[in-house]
Protein backbone atom coordinates (compact mmCIF):
# COMPACT_ATOMS: atom_id res chain seq x y z
CA UNK A 1 0.00 0.00 0.00
CA UNK A 2 1.51 3.30 -1.07
CA UNK A 3 1.30 6.32 1.17
CA UNK A 4 -0.27 8.10 -1.77
CA UNK A 5 -3.50 6.12 -1.81
CA UNK A 6 -5.76 8.41 0.12
CA UNK A 7 -9.23 6.99 0.60
CA UNK A 8 -10.59 10.29 1.88
CA UNK A 9 -9.31 13.58 0.62
CA UNK A 10 -10.57 17.12 1.01
CA UNK A 11 -9.02 20.32 -0.28
CA UNK A 12 -10.03 23.80 0.76
CA UNK A 13 -13.59 22.92 1.81
CA UNK A 14 -15.65 26.04 2.50
CA UNK A 15 -19.24 26.15 3.72
CA UNK A 16 -21.10 29.30 4.76
CA UNK A 17 -24.43 29.65 6.51
CA UNK A 18 -25.52 33.25 6.16
CA UNK A 19 -22.91 35.14 8.21
CA UNK A 20 -21.32 32.10 9.83
CA UNK A 21 -18.54 30.33 8.03
CA UNK A 22 -18.79 26.73 9.23
CA UNK A 23 -15.83 25.57 7.16
CA UNK A 24 -13.11 27.96 6.08
CA UNK A 25 -10.83 25.95 3.85
CA UNK A 26 -10.44 22.56 5.48
CA UNK A 27 -7.90 20.09 4.08
CA UNK A 28 -7.95 16.42 5.00
CA UNK A 29 -6.17 13.32 3.73
CA UNK A 30 -6.72 9.84 5.10
CA UNK A 31 -4.50 7.01 3.78
CA UNK A 32 -6.08 3.63 3.14
CA UNK A 33 -6.60 1.46 6.20
CA UNK A 34 -5.97 4.24 8.72
CA UNK A 35 -8.09 6.22 11.15
CA UNK A 36 -8.27 9.99 11.21
CA UNK A 37 -9.90 11.76 14.14
CA UNK A 38 -11.33 15.20 13.61
CA UNK A 39 -11.09 16.69 17.07
CA UNK A 40 -12.85 19.86 18.08
CA UNK A 41 -15.48 21.42 20.33
CA UNK A 42 -19.14 21.97 19.44
CA UNK A 43 -19.49 24.37 16.56
CA UNK A 44 -15.98 23.83 15.21
CA UNK A 45 -17.35 22.54 11.90
CA UNK A 46 -16.95 18.80 12.41
CA UNK A 47 -20.48 17.83 11.41
CA UNK A 48 -20.41 20.19 8.45
CA UNK A 49 -17.20 18.54 7.24
CA UNK A 50 -18.78 15.10 7.61
CA UNK A 51 -21.87 16.19 5.69
CA UNK A 52 -19.77 17.58 2.85
CA UNK A 53 -17.77 14.34 2.60
CA UNK A 54 -20.88 12.15 2.61
CA UNK A 55 -22.78 14.02 -0.15
CA UNK A 56 -25.37 15.38 2.28
CA UNK A 57 -24.20 18.94 1.82
CA UNK A 58 -22.75 20.88 -1.10
CA UNK A 59 -19.65 22.81 -0.09
CA UNK A 60 -19.47 26.41 -1.35
CA UNK A 61 -15.87 25.92 -2.43
CA UNK A 62 -13.17 23.29 -2.46
CA UNK A 63 -13.29 19.66 -3.47
CA UNK A 64 -13.48 16.25 -1.87
CA UNK A 65 -12.80 12.72 -3.02
CA UNK A 66 -13.73 9.36 -1.58
CA UNK A 67 -11.79 6.41 -2.94
CA UNK A 68 -10.72 8.64 -5.83
CA UNK A 69 -14.30 9.59 -6.74
CA UNK A 70 -15.27 13.25 -6.75
CA UNK A 71 -18.03 13.90 -4.20
CA UNK A 72 -19.75 16.54 -6.31
CA UNK A 73 -19.07 14.85 -9.63
CA UNK A 74 -20.53 11.42 -8.91
CA UNK A 75 -22.36 11.42 -5.58
CA UNK A 76 -24.12 8.08 -6.25
CA UNK A 77 -20.78 6.31 -6.74
CA UNK A 78 -19.47 7.95 -3.56
CA UNK A 79 -22.51 6.66 -1.67
CA UNK A 80 -21.62 3.11 -2.72
CA UNK A 81 -18.21 3.59 -1.09
CA UNK A 82 -19.17 5.08 2.25
CA UNK A 83 -20.97 4.10 5.39
CA UNK A 84 -22.18 6.98 7.54
CA UNK A 85 -23.11 6.83 11.17
CA UNK A 86 -24.26 10.09 12.62
CA UNK A 87 -24.46 11.86 15.91
CA UNK A 88 -28.25 11.56 15.72
CA UNK A 89 -28.88 7.90 15.08
CA UNK A 90 -30.40 7.58 11.60
CA UNK A 91 -32.78 4.75 12.41
CA UNK A 92 -36.54 4.57 12.06
CA UNK A 93 -37.96 4.34 15.55
CA UNK A 94 -41.12 2.50 14.51
CA UNK A 95 -39.20 -0.22 12.70
CA UNK A 96 -37.49 -3.06 14.53
CA UNK A 97 -33.72 -3.36 14.36
CA UNK A 98 -34.14 -6.17 11.86
CA UNK A 99 -36.53 -4.16 9.69
CA UNK A 100 -34.23 -1.14 9.76
CA UNK A 101 -31.25 -3.14 8.54
CA UNK A 102 -33.25 -5.11 5.98
CA UNK A 103 -34.58 -1.85 4.57
CA UNK A 104 -31.07 -0.45 4.23
CA UNK A 105 -29.94 -3.65 2.50
CA UNK A 106 -32.81 -3.48 0.02
CA UNK A 107 -31.99 0.16 -0.70
CA UNK A 108 -28.43 -0.88 -1.50
CA UNK A 109 -30.03 -3.12 -4.11
CA UNK A 110 -29.77 -6.43 -2.22
CA UNK A 111 -32.43 -9.07 -2.87
CA UNK A 112 -34.86 -9.88 -0.05
CA UNK A 113 -33.01 -13.00 1.06
CA UNK A 114 -29.59 -11.39 1.07
CA UNK A 115 -30.86 -8.28 2.88
CA UNK A 116 -32.38 -10.44 5.62
CA UNK A 117 -29.30 -12.60 6.05
CA UNK A 118 -27.07 -9.57 6.29
CA UNK A 119 -29.43 -7.94 8.82
CA UNK A 120 -29.36 -11.04 11.08
CA UNK A 121 -25.58 -11.22 10.78
CA UNK A 122 -25.13 -7.59 11.81
CA UNK A 123 -27.61 -7.82 14.69
CA UNK A 124 -25.62 -10.80 15.98
CA UNK A 125 -22.33 -8.98 15.61
CA UNK A 126 -23.54 -5.84 17.37
CA UNK A 127 -25.05 -7.71 20.27
CA UNK A 128 -28.58 -6.78 19.19
CA UNK A 129 -29.88 -10.21 18.21
CA UNK A 130 -32.22 -10.42 21.22
CA UNK A 131 -33.64 -6.96 20.61
CA UNK A 132 -33.75 -7.39 16.82
CA UNK A 133 -37.50 -7.86 16.63
CA UNK A 134 -38.42 -4.96 18.91
CA UNK A 135 -39.19 -1.48 17.54
CA UNK A 136 -35.99 0.51 17.85
CA UNK A 137 -37.65 3.22 19.91
CA UNK A 138 -37.50 0.79 22.83
CA UNK A 139 -33.68 0.68 22.50
CA UNK A 140 -31.24 2.43 24.82
CA UNK A 141 -29.03 5.19 23.42
CA UNK A 142 -26.10 2.82 23.09
CA UNK A 143 -28.17 0.17 21.30
CA UNK A 144 -29.58 2.73 18.91
CA UNK A 145 -26.10 3.97 18.12
CA UNK A 146 -24.91 0.43 17.47
CA UNK A 147 -27.89 -0.19 15.20
CA UNK A 148 -27.04 2.99 13.32
CA UNK A 149 -23.43 1.87 12.92
CA UNK A 150 -24.67 -1.54 11.74
CA UNK A 151 -26.72 0.34 9.12
CA UNK A 152 -23.53 1.97 7.88
CA UNK A 153 -21.89 -1.45 7.48
CA UNK A 154 -24.62 -3.26 5.57
CA UNK A 155 -22.83 -3.07 2.22
CA UNK A 156 -19.33 -3.36 3.74
CA UNK A 157 -18.13 -0.03 2.35
CA UNK A 158 -14.37 0.62 2.23
CA UNK A 159 -14.75 4.03 3.89
CA UNK A 160 -16.54 4.68 7.17
CA UNK A 161 -17.41 8.12 8.45
CA UNK A 162 -18.57 8.33 12.05
CA UNK A 163 -19.81 11.61 13.47
CA UNK A 164 -19.27 11.66 17.23
CA UNK A 165 -19.92 7.94 17.61
CA UNK A 166 -19.76 7.99 21.42
CA UNK A 167 -21.15 11.40 22.40
CA UNK A 168 -23.80 10.94 25.06
CA UNK A 169 -23.03 7.27 25.67
CA UNK A 170 -22.39 5.80 29.11
CA UNK A 171 -18.87 4.47 29.76
CA UNK A 172 -19.80 0.85 29.08
CA UNK A 173 -21.48 1.65 25.75
CA UNK A 174 -18.54 3.84 24.84
CA UNK A 175 -16.13 0.98 25.52
CA UNK A 176 -18.27 -1.33 23.37
CA UNK A 177 -18.29 1.21 20.56
CA UNK A 178 -14.51 1.53 20.76
CA UNK A 179 -14.13 -2.25 20.51
CA UNK A 180 -16.33 -2.33 17.43
CA UNK A 181 -14.40 0.51 15.79
CA UNK A 182 -11.08 -1.23 16.47
CA UNK A 183 -12.39 -4.41 14.87
CA UNK A 184 -13.45 -2.48 11.79
CA UNK A 185 -10.03 -0.96 11.43
CA UNK A 186 -8.40 -4.35 11.90
CA UNK A 187 -10.61 -5.51 9.02
CA UNK A 188 -9.00 -2.93 6.73
CA UNK A 189 -11.60 -0.16 6.70
CA UNK A 190 -10.53 3.44 6.33
CA UNK A 191 -12.17 5.55 8.96
CA UNK A 192 -12.81 9.18 9.71
CA UNK A 193 -14.38 9.95 13.05
CA UNK A 194 -15.19 13.18 14.77
CA UNK A 195 -14.95 13.56 18.50
CA UNK A 196 -14.81 16.05 21.33
CA UNK A 197 -12.65 13.76 23.43
CA UNK A 198 -8.89 13.77 23.12
CA UNK A 199 -8.84 10.41 24.89
CA UNK A 200 -11.03 8.89 22.21
CA UNK A 201 -8.89 10.27 19.41
CA UNK A 202 -5.80 9.04 21.25
CA UNK A 203 -7.15 5.50 21.58
CA UNK A 204 -8.56 5.07 18.10
CA UNK A 205 -6.80 7.31 15.62
CA UNK A 206 -3.55 7.11 13.72
CA UNK A 207 -3.75 10.80 12.95
CA UNK A 208 -5.57 13.67 14.57
CA UNK A 209 -6.67 16.93 13.05
CA UNK A 210 -7.68 19.58 15.57
CA UNK A 211 -10.35 21.79 14.08
CA UNK A 212 -11.45 25.24 15.21
CA UNK A 213 -13.66 27.73 13.36
CA UNK A 214 -13.84 25.42 10.38
CA UNK A 215 -10.09 25.24 9.91
CA UNK A 216 -7.38 22.79 10.95
CA UNK A 217 -5.25 24.35 13.69
CA UNK A 218 -3.03 21.37 14.41
CA UNK A 219 -2.41 17.96 12.96
CA UNK A 220 -0.29 14.97 13.78
CA UNK A 221 -0.25 11.71 15.70
CA UNK A 222 -1.61 11.62 19.21
CA UNK A 223 1.94 11.59 20.60
CA UNK A 224 3.01 14.59 18.54
CA UNK A 225 -0.05 16.47 19.62
CA UNK A 226 0.49 15.61 23.26
CA UNK A 227 4.08 16.65 23.06
CA UNK A 228 2.95 19.91 21.54
CA UNK A 229 0.38 20.47 24.24
CA UNK A 230 2.62 19.34 27.04
CA UNK A 231 1.56 15.74 27.66
CA UNK A 232 0.28 14.72 31.06
CA UNK A 233 -0.53 17.14 33.84
CA UNK A 234 0.14 17.05 37.54
CA UNK A 235 -2.76 18.49 39.48
CA UNK A 236 -2.55 19.32 43.17
CA UNK A 237 -5.41 20.57 45.32
CA UNK A 238 -4.18 22.02 48.61
CA UNK A 239 -6.07 22.30 51.87
CA UNK A 240 -5.14 25.89 52.60
CA UNK A 241 -4.78 28.84 50.24
CA UNK A 242 -1.66 29.89 52.19
CA UNK A 243 0.19 26.86 50.81
CA UNK A 244 -0.53 27.64 47.17
CA UNK A 245 2.68 29.60 46.58
CA UNK A 246 4.91 26.91 48.07
CA UNK A 247 3.18 24.22 46.03
CA UNK A 248 3.54 26.31 42.94
CA UNK A 249 7.29 26.42 43.27
CA UNK A 250 7.46 22.68 43.94
CA UNK A 251 5.44 21.92 40.81
CA UNK A 252 7.40 24.48 38.78
CA UNK A 253 10.54 22.42 39.35
CA UNK A 254 9.13 19.56 37.26
CA UNK A 255 6.81 21.55 35.03
CA UNK A 256 7.08 21.89 31.35
CA UNK A 257 5.82 25.34 30.56
CA UNK A 258 3.64 27.52 32.72
CA UNK A 259 2.12 26.53 36.05
CA UNK A 260 -1.57 27.30 36.29
CA UNK A 261 -3.23 28.27 39.59
CA UNK A 262 -6.96 28.34 40.17
CA UNK A 263 -7.83 29.08 43.81
CA UNK A 264 -6.50 26.01 45.61
CA UNK A 265 -5.65 24.00 42.51
CA UNK A 266 -2.17 24.00 41.02
CA UNK A 267 -1.78 22.49 37.59
CA UNK A 268 1.11 22.04 35.19
CA UNK A 269 2.14 19.96 32.22
CA UNK A 270 5.06 17.64 33.02
CA UNK A 271 7.42 15.37 31.13
CA UNK A 272 7.65 11.76 32.30
CA UNK A 273 4.40 11.72 34.28
CA UNK A 274 4.82 9.19 37.14
CA UNK A 275 8.39 10.24 37.96
CA UNK A 276 7.37 13.88 38.15
CA UNK A 277 4.43 12.99 40.32
CA UNK A 278 6.68 11.06 42.69
CA UNK A 279 9.03 14.03 42.98
CA UNK A 280 6.20 16.41 43.72
CA UNK A 281 4.84 14.04 46.37
CA UNK A 282 8.25 13.74 47.98
CA UNK A 283 8.69 17.51 48.18
CA UNK A 284 5.19 18.01 49.54
CA UNK A 285 5.87 15.48 52.28
CA UNK A 286 9.17 17.03 53.15
CA UNK A 287 7.56 20.46 53.52
CA UNK A 288 4.60 18.87 55.30
CA UNK A 289 2.00 20.54 53.17
CA UNK A 290 -1.54 19.26 53.60
CA UNK A 291 -2.91 18.16 50.24
CA UNK A 292 -6.56 17.29 49.53
CA UNK A 293 -5.96 15.66 46.18
CA UNK A 294 -3.11 14.96 43.86
CA UNK A 295 -2.89 13.12 40.58
CA UNK A 296 -1.80 12.78 37.02
CA UNK A 297 -4.26 13.87 34.44
CA UNK A 298 -4.23 13.29 30.69
CA UNK A 299 -4.64 16.45 28.67
CA UNK A 300 -8.20 17.02 27.52
CA UNK A 301 -9.51 18.81 24.48
CA UNK A 302 -9.68 21.84 26.74
CA UNK A 303 -5.94 21.66 27.47
CA UNK A 304 -5.18 21.23 23.78
CA UNK A 305 -7.27 24.25 23.00
CA UNK A 306 -5.76 26.28 25.76
CA UNK A 307 -2.31 25.56 24.42
CA UNK A 308 -3.13 26.01 20.74
CA UNK A 309 -5.49 28.96 20.85
CA UNK A 310 -5.05 30.48 24.28
CA UNK A 311 -8.67 29.89 25.21
CA UNK A 312 -10.60 26.90 26.44
CA UNK A 313 -12.85 24.79 24.25
CA UNK A 314 -15.85 25.82 26.29
CA UNK A 315 -15.30 29.54 25.81
CA UNK A 316 -14.86 28.68 22.19
CA UNK A 317 -18.20 26.97 21.77
CA UNK A 318 -20.13 29.70 23.54
CA UNK A 319 -18.83 32.39 21.20
CA UNK A 320 -19.85 30.61 18.01
CA UNK A 321 -23.30 29.60 16.92
CA UNK A 322 -24.49 26.07 17.46
CA UNK A 323 -23.18 23.73 14.87
CA UNK A 324 -25.70 23.33 12.09
CA UNK A 325 -26.84 19.74 12.15
Amino acid sequence: MGVDTFMIRAEGLVKRYKEVEALSGLDLAVPEGTVLALLGPNGAGKTTAVRCLTTLLRPDAGRAEINGIDVLGDPQAVRRNIGLSGQYAAVDEHLTGFENLTMVGRLYGFGKQRARERARQLLERFDLADAGDRPSKTYSGGMRRRLDLAGALVAEPPVLILDEPTTGLDPRSRQQMWDVIRELVAGGSTLLLTTQYLEEADRLADDIVVIDHGRAIARGTADQLKAQTGGERVEVVVGSVDDVDRVRSIVAAVAHGEVGVDERTVLAAVDGGPASLARVLEELQREQIHVLDIGLRRPTLDDVFLTLTGRSAEEQSSTTTEEVA
Partner: peptide, 17 residues
Amino acid sequence: QKGIIDRFRSLPMSPAA
Protein backbone atom coordinates in the same frame (compact mmCIF):
# COMPACT_ATOMS: atom_id res chain seq x y z
CA GLN B 1 -36.97 16.35 9.97
CA LYS B 2 -35.96 12.86 11.02
CA GLY B 3 -32.50 11.37 11.19
CA ILE B 4 -33.54 8.57 8.86
CA ILE B 5 -33.42 11.02 5.94
CA ASP B 6 -29.65 11.24 6.43
CA ARG B 7 -29.47 7.48 6.12
CA PHE B 8 -31.56 7.57 2.95
CA ARG B 9 -29.48 10.35 1.49
CA SER B 10 -26.20 8.60 2.14
CA LEU B 11 -27.39 5.46 0.33
CA PRO B 12 -27.05 4.94 -3.43
CA MET B 13 -30.83 4.83 -3.78
CA SER B 14 -33.13 6.62 -6.21
CA PRO B 15 -33.67 10.26 -5.19
CA ALA B 16 -37.38 9.81 -6.01
CA ALA B 17 -37.79 6.82 -3.68
